[in-house]
Design a protein around this nucleic acid. Sequence first.
DNA 1: CACTGAACCAAATGACGAATTTGGTCAGTG
DNA 2: CACTGACCAAATTCGTCATTTGGTTCAGTG
Lengths: 233, 233
Amino acid sequence: MAVLAEQESGSAARILGAARELVLKRGVKGLTVAEIADRAHVAKGTIYLHWSTREDLLVGLFGRDFLASHDEFAELLTADPDAARPSRLLPLLLQSTVDHPFISALQSEDEDLLGVLTQHPRSAKLLENLGPAALLRVALPVWRRHNLARTDWEFDEQAYALQALLLGFLATAVERRALAIIAVDEPARVIAAAVTALLGPEDPGPGDIRATADAALADLATRRAALLESIGN
Amino acid sequence: MAVLAEQESGSAARILGAARELVLKRGVKGLTVAEIADRAHVAKGTIYLHWSTREDLLVGLFGRDFLASHDEFAELLTADPDAARPSRLLPLLLQSTVDHPFISALQSEDEDLLGVLTQHPRSAKLLENLGPAALLRVALPVWRRHNLARTDWEFDEQAYALQALLLGFLATAVERRALAIIAVDEPARVIAAAVTALLGPEDPGPGDIRATADAALADLATRRAALLESIGN
DNA sequence: CACTGAACCAAATGACGAATTTGGTCAGTG
DNA sequence: CACTGACCAAATTCGTCATTTGGTTCAGTG
């Protein structure tokens, strides 16, 4: 099983922390390995004991945001299966994206922060497999199966609409560009209402919520494993 | 009253046509005034009889897309006031955006097509005042007033949700980036259903539809005048 | 008077060698 | 054996200057 570098080495953790701070402050472009090493109080060579290239380190950094997000969802769903409801999960998903700067940066293709890695295949793969849209694609069938979404709407069309809604909320919440003039205090409440409007009233039978949460947890575990595989050492 | 250059001069019309073809084919970047003049079979100097700078010509080109879109809506709403319903107007708005390449390009900030004009203040102003989001902002209050949208939802929140929905659909329909995996045959039907889900069933009384269409037409006329002012000669 | 196209010139581009930077390596150290 | 930092090849940046490009002008033409 893959294991994260920072779990077995304090210096790896410091390197990640330093890299994170520096990328968030000044972006990937122009950020040098020497700087990261300096701030982490290690020599350059040490970085290459844990990652084999600079790109590996940076992509690993992004991956850790997805990892953190997944783990938070796993924890939440374990403690509170009710959070698997669409009207709760989608606002949480939106919030989680906003809260994890690298997820939002990838979602909005933030050139300033990600530099050349914006369109990079490995970044794209992260977003495609683990981003909010991906989560949504696996969640909708489960919701339909457990009376948490209306089924009198063709699946593809419903998925398309839900995806557009989520992308729209993400764009207005995350993107810098000011296409969105209207602002609102609690986007989370608004998206919850919008999701309920789209998917219809939630009418779970006994066990439906639990089953949904379990399906979500199982999926999260699968994704987590694949993610670890791709960023672990 | 401002009047369009092409209405009083054949050469102006040819210049616009040539510029449009060339921009659509190869983008603004690298496109020279000499090329436009060549294709329009006029000398370079002639262009400056109608527009005072190259930028003026290009922005005028974009503006004409908005003009065309507005005129199509005006015509449609005059012939068929029922098209002012949210469930009809929003799909039309989406379709109109897709159909007018410069509107979509501005909406999606298409760097390849618009080059340096993507973020240009004058382009931004066009989109902000005349783009789909702008239309939506003025339409929603009218719909609420005439029983075409539920009013048991706070205005700002409803507007925010509707805007996000529209932006999401625009993004999936117009943008190149492949965040949207799910595709669908008739986006127009899907957005109609989504809009109805968000705004509730339409329940117009006698005269409500007509009044809505009239308000829309009045607004279109105002915007058209302002637009002419900014791109006319 | 609508239109032309040669002429103008500010700005962009390209060339190119020198100087500097930087990702990655590895022999050595404590 | 985790870590260091001098070292190197490759890439990037910089400075400078010649050349070209391309938007704009305007005296002239038919």
